[in-house]
């Protein structure tokens, strides 16, 4: 049985889709079978980031409504054999997702894949709650600024209340992924410090992704950053985050920074 991971944030534009694609491709490069699922029905983007927009025939809504079989809707990545995409529909809205349909799709995907990574839409409505509903783990994507942190806090509360795991009385594993982090701006005090974000959200950190033009460049060529340029700073940070997600214990660093005071602080905080 595979693990279902929801990538969520509450706030839009913080990097959920980028992170879903990057983590998916990073886990697939560890020779695990991975599917990334787009839950953003009506505003789908994951197909673009994965470079599969011209290959979408059927989508998750077709599968739920019985118009297509699940294997027909899955798109295999051209670069990695064990990475798949289940796209969202662009012409429908989120009401087309039914709880029973989503449950069935998740159960089927878990049987065939080691990792099912769900890209949640922004907000706390139907699309977002259905995306998190069947998750075993959550990656909470947060930018180091107050509105993103508060929205993430709200989402963590929902993860503890509205997921199947929570309703069964179990605890859903939650991880913080801090994205678009700019060390220079943080030093000047223009951004929240890492320790401030951790203090407010109080969930373990699995990575700090630096703000980088490499991320934008990768999006534009339609490749997850961990495939486009594996040696870039954000890609290396995503690789490390994927290893932590898989259960490895590594000290947290910001790629491109010298390991000094930062390494010590983050190493301690991540423990």
């Amino acid at each position: 049985m595979g693990k279902v991971v929801v990538v969520t944030s509450g706030k839009g534009g913080v990097g959920k889709t980028t992170s879903t694609a990057a983590l998916g491709a990073a886990l697939a490069q560890r020779n695990e079978k991975v599917v990334v699922v787009d839950f953003d029905v009506g505003l789908r983007n994951l197909d673009l980031i994965m470079g599969a927009e011209r290959r979408v025939v059927y989508d998750i809504v077709n599968v739920i409504q019985g118009d297509a079989k699940l294997p027909q809707a899955l798109i295999r990545d051209k670069r990695l054999d064990n990475l798949f995409l289940l796209p969202a529909s662009q012409t429908r809205d989120k009401d087309a997702l039914t709880p029973e349909g989503v449950e069935q799709v998740m159960a089927d995907l878990k049987r065939y894949f080691d990792w099912v990574i769900c890209d949640s839409p922004a907000g706390i409505e139907r699309g977002a709650t259905l995306a998190m509903r069947h998750a075993d783990m959550a990656v909470v994507v947060t930018n180091p600024e107050v509105s993103s942190v508060r929205d993430s806090d709200r989402i963590i509360g929902l993860l503890d209340a509205k997921t199947m795991k929570a309703e069964r009385g179990e605890r859903i594993e939650k991880h913080l992924l801090l994205t678009r982090y700019d060390a220079n701006r943080a030093e000047r005090g223009d951004m929240l410090k890492v320790e401030d974000v951790l203090e407010i959200l109080s969930i373990p950190l699995i990575g700090i992704i630096p703000e980088s033009s490499d991320v934008l460049r990768a999006s534009n060529i339609g490749a997850p950053v961990t495939l486009a340029d594996a040696k870039s700073a954000p890609a290396m940070a995503y690789f490390d985050a994927a290893r932590r997600l898989a259960g490895e214990d590594l000290p947290i660093t910001i790629p491109g920074e010298k390991r000094g005071i930062f390494g010590k602080i983050f190493g301690r905080k991540a423990a």
Binding site: D153, I156, G157, L158, D160
Partner: peptide, 8 residues
Amino acid sequence: SEPIRSGQ
């Protein structure tokens, strides 16, 4: 014994 989150 856990934090009270935004919205709770």
